[in-house]
């Protein structure tokens, strides 16, 4: 049984100023909405946040950005957020942009006990600056390091009380790797079920990676609503 907390506020109680956080989601899909709102309310500052994107101006990680709670952002695409651009150009926010596949693999490696790996992505580009390179089979590769964090915040569609998680459709994205790469992983689930109710073969994230849980109702804002024409 994993500790099930009554509120998101309680779940993030020990996240201190200066902490490093891994946060699941691609765009606004699969983000732990209530845990982010609780961090905004708590007002914890100087955070290093690792997440593919940084929300939009008024939702998701964009809320922490607007509140000046993020000191450094590590991600792959932050183009949806005007405040982000403003803070970077004004020197208020540090940013490290990483190729999306490299980001995913660095987090996977971090959670899987692999300190570094070689990838072709970024060779001959600004991403390669200051990085060790090596030739394999006549082709050049960059060494990239595994990533871990003090806390990982993820969202799943379903979880059982043993911490086993199942994600829905493209809301899976970075969540499984992030769940494995946090010293403390907090899972926000839309629906909590009893142990034994989930098919063991259908579980995406085994409970061993999850330290605490909350149940949270999601708004699931849509960034770009596109429907069939005519």
């Amino acid at each position: 049984m994993k500790p099930l907390l009554d509120s998101a506020r309680e779940a993030v109680k020990d996240i201190q100023d200066g902490a490093t956080l891994l946060v699941g989601g691609f765009g606004l899909v699969g983000i732990p909405e209530n845990l982010i709102l609780a961090l905004e309310e708590k007002g914890v500052k100087d955070l290093t946040v690792i997440s593919n994107n940084c929300g939009v101006d008024d939702w998701g990680l964009g809320l922490l950005l607007k509140n000046k709670q993020i000191k450094k952002m590590i991600g792959s695409y932050v183009g949806e957020n005007k405040e982000f651009e403003r803070q970077v150009l004004a020197g208020e926010l540090e940013v490290e942009l990483i190729p999306q596949g490299t980001l995913a693999e660095r987090i996977r490696a971090g959670g899987a006990g692999i300190p570094a790996f070689f990838t072709p992505a970024g060779v001959g580009t600004p991403v390669a600056e200051g990085k060790e390179t090596r030739m394999f089979g006549g082709k050049e590769y960059l060494m990239e390091l595994g990533l871990t964090a003090d806390f990982s915040l993820v969202r799943a569609a379903k979880g059982d009380k043993a911490g086993n998680l199942i994600f829905n459709k493209t809301a899976r994205n970075f969540n499984p790797m992030i769940a494995a790469a946090g010293k403390v992983t907090i899972a926000e689930v839309e629906e909590l079920v009893e142990i034994g109710e989930l098919d063991p073969d259908a579980i995406h994230t085994p409970g061993v990676y999850v330290q605490r849980m909350i149940v949270g109702k999601q708004e699931k804002r849509i960034e770009r609503l596109t429907v069939k024409q005519g």
């Binding site: 691609f26 699969g30 596949g101 693999e105 569609a157 899976r172 790797m177 960034e223 770009r224």
Partner: peptide, 26 residues
């Protein structure tokens, strides 16, 4: 809302589609 493409547009999945995480995708 849980089903988008990389441009963050809402889409559908064809019959025979599969979902996976970002590390597997790359």
């Amino acid at each position: 809302p849980d089903l988008i493409n990389a441009g963050k547009e809402t889409v559908t999945a064809i019959s025979g589609a599969s979902y996976f995480d970002s590390a597997e995708s790359f």
